[in-house]
Design a protein around this nucleic acid. Structure first.
Length: 698
DNA sequence: TTCGGAGGTCTTTTT
DNA sequence: GACCTCCGAA
């Protein structure tokens, strides 16, 4: 058989993966081995060479971004429209299936999708109702564990979980887990529905299989039950989401779970130098729960990896900054990684001070911004008037003089009448007389949009009109000017425009751009499209979890201290420690040319403790690592500056001019012990002298 | 009754 | 610093 031209771009293992079509296939793809390429080419090969209809192909990715990229690549490869091809995350795919089969479920077709914030609000609401003082976050964890199939720790937890589910049903809402669970339920209880999809999807592809959970595994079993052509790609050494229920056993046991599975390994690495690969390989060999593989490359040995000690997080950031300056442009070749989001501050401050451009990826995601969430809550309430959680979020945003007391009275009324908050208003106002006209006005506002929505007015028109009617921009300016930096306020306004822009784009691109569809589209979309991101020359800063799938010339792995990375919560159990090790393995293998690892002796979040270097540093092979010890000199300098700073701080008085690394020059308005109120160019900030690095200025 | 300020607590990772 | 709760001013 003559080879199809598509296959010429692939190495022998990749080619084998692409052309192994029948039955279950597991591709164990090491970091940088061309995993995405294999997936893309396989789908393209099916369509082009084997004439499979796109409607019969399913591809599940880990993020929406990955889904979009894959679709684009296939289109570029084949120059065809990929409409009909099912590509998306488990969550987005499940939403589509659920909406299409909503008649089988006890929900209305316009159900809301609740994110973590909404979930916490539900938990809090129940806690109020039963007058418990448990902490919402811990309870939510328990709920999620029960949903993932674990035994509840106590009877009480189980009862609470039932209450939570009941509440969600009343609110006509599903959380992220429900999207998967209800789809599974749909398949299990309605053979015809399952048959339909199992029949449709002749070829199933799953990316990042090592991070699938139990429910996702079961969904795949159902979907592949007819044709059995399931092709999964993953790397057991990159499984880093067990806290979210990911079960590494899915990939470890694939051959047992799917009989006659073929296994193909991709071990040739096209990304990193020999030294980097050696470090990564030796490190990960300390793990016991793995299939075992050895990455190799034809490339050069490259530079050795650097381990650098610094005094504290500030000096660590200074070191990283000076290294980046030394490497020179473009800055976009540099990736700075840390274990926890809280570590970003020092880098922000130092990069700002030095005028180094940067972008933080994922710290607060676009859809988690308050102003964005508020607007979306309006839309959710309009689409689903039963959504009391969204109601409570916006009933007094912008302020309309409806406070806690009013809401309590309305809630009680709604509860006795068995009504949802919004629908309870007319009766409530009639019942209580003219006292609550503010509520009535809110009701009329929402009703107007509900009617527009029923008339199938498009999502953009509704949102546009809403933003104007609410005078939302003015509200933001009024609330935030004076209390936060100018750029931050502008950022908020930009976010409002961005969500409006997304609605506009949606309306242009979709043939049925209703509010429901728009909400469906954005609810499972958790990351912002980074249109401008690549264009500007900036340093990228993010958590290691966010770095999966990326590659950069220079990678800085910071905060390598015991208790930080590995995180202190993972020190006691072997399997958790192994996950931390995999996390570091992911971090190292992002690098093409250089890896620079840093640790600090002190850190303000762990104030007063002397931190030890990460145990993982000891596991690195000595011959490829340089221990850079300029730290002594730093330490002396540091002591001097610390003393100077301390002197300066006690000398600071009301009226003095000061300099702050982030806010610039300012003047002290009020001083009260350690606390100061300072007027900067961008507004007034309340600061603590202990943490804020204020310097006296002229 | 609402709202803003003061003061205390906490900080893993996220589709 | 972010987030939450409590308390006093308007």
């Amino acid at each position: 058989m003559t080879e199809h031209p598509l296959l010429q771009d692939l190495n022998p293992e990749q080619r084998k993966a692409v052309t192994t079509i029948e039955g279950p296939v597991l591709v164990i793809a090491g970091a940088g081995s061309g995993k995405t390429r294999v997936l893309t080419y396989r789908v393209a090969y099916l369509i082009k060479a084997l004439k499979v209809s796109p409607e019969n192909i399913l591809a599940v990715t880990f993020t929406n971004k990955a889904a979009n990229e894959m679709r684009d690549r296939i289109e570029n490869l084949l120059h065809i429209n990929t409409k009909g091809l099912f590509i998306g995350t488990f969550h987005s795919i499940c939403v589509r299936i659920l909406r299409a089969n909503i008649d089988y479920l006890p929900y209305d077709k316009n159900f809301s999708i609740f994110d973590r914030d909404d979930q916490l609000r539900v938990v809090k609401k129940i806690l109020e109702e039963i007058k418990s003082r448990e902490t919402p976050k811990r309870l939510l964890r328990h709920i999620q564990r029960i949903k993932a199939g674990q035994e509840p720790e106590t009877e009480w937890h189980y009862d609470f979980y039932k209450k939570y589910q009941q509440k969600l049903l009343e609110l006509n809402a599903m959380d992220f887990d429900d999207l998967l669970i209800n789809t599974r339920k749909l398949f299990e209880e309605h053979e015809n529905v399952k048959e339909f999809y199992a029949d449709k999807f002749m070829y199933i592809h799953v990316d990042e299989y090592q991070d699938t959970n139990r429910i996702q595994y079961e969904l795949l079993r159902h979907l592949s039950s007819k044709h059995r052509n399931i092709f999964v790609v993953g790397d057991d050494d990159q499984s880093i989401y067990s806290f979210r229920g990911a079960d590494i056993r899915n990939i470890l046991h694939f051959e047992k779970d799917f009989k006659d599975a073929k296994v193909i390994r991709l071990e040739r690495n096209y990304r990193s130098t020999k030294n980097i690969l050696k470090a990564a390989t030796v490190l990960i060999a300390n793990n016991t729960m793995r299939k075992g593989k050895t990455l190799w490359t034809d490339g050069p040995s490259g530079e050795k990896l650097v381990v650098h000690e610094s005094f504290d997080e500030r000096e660590e950031a200074e070191y990283v900054a000076s290294k980046i300056e030394e490497f020179g442009r473009p800055f976009s070749n540099n990736l700075v990684l840390y274990r926890t989001n809280a570590q970003s501050r020092a880098f922000e401050e130092v990069f700002n001070k030095r005028g180094l451009p940067y972008i933080i990826v994922g710290s607060i995601k676009f859809f988690e911004r308050k102003e964005v969430k508020d607007l979306i809550a309006y839309l959710k309430l309009i689409a689903n008037p039963k959504d009391d959680i969204s109601f409570l979020r916006i009933v007094n945003t912008p302020h309309r003089g409806i406070g806690a007391k009013t809401m309590k009275t309305l809630s009680d009324y709604a509860l006795t009448e068995g009504l949802h908050l919004l629908e309870a208003i007319p009766g409530f106002v009639e019942y209580t007389g003219t006292k609550y006209l503010k509520l009535k006005r809110f009701y009329d506002l929402i009703s107007k949009y509900i009617k527009l929505n029923e008339k199938k007015e498009d999502a953009f028109s509704i949102l546009h009109d809403l933003i104007n009617t609410l005078e939302f921009a003015e509200y933001i300016k009024k609330t935030y000017s004076g209390q936060e930096a100018r750029e931050k306020l502008e950022g908020r306004l930009e976010n409002v425009n961005a969500i409006l822009g997304m609605a506009q784009e949606f309306v242009i691109n979709q043939n049925n751009p209703t509010l429901e569809h728009f909400l469906e589209h954005i609810s499972v979309q958790t990351e912002q499209d980074d249109m401008e991101m690549q264009q500007k020359d900036r340093i990228t800063i993010m958590t290691v979890h966010n770095a999966k799938g990326l590659e950069f010339d220079n990678v800085f792995i910071t905060g390598l201290e015991d208790g930080v990375f590995p995180h202190k919560s993972a020190l006691s159990a072997t399997y958790e420690l192994e996950e931390e090790r995999r996390l570091l393995h992911v971090a190292i293998t992002r690098a093409k040319k250089r890896v620079i690892m840093t640790y600090a002796r002190e850190r303000s979040i762990r104030f007063g403790e002397l931190l030890l270097p990460s145990r993982f540093i000891d596991e690195l092979p000595e011959d490829v690592v340089i221990f850079d010890s300029v730290s002594k000199r730093y330490k002396e300098q540091r002591k001097e500056t610390e003393e100077k700073e301390r002197r300066v701080q006690t000398e600071l008085h009301k009226g003095d001019y000061v300099y702050h690394p982030m806010f610039g020059r300012g003047r002290i308005l009020v001083k009260n012990g350690d606390k100061v109120k300072v007027l900067f160019m961008d507004g007034i900030k309340n600061l603590s002298l202990k943490y804020a690095k204020l310097v006296k200025s002229q």
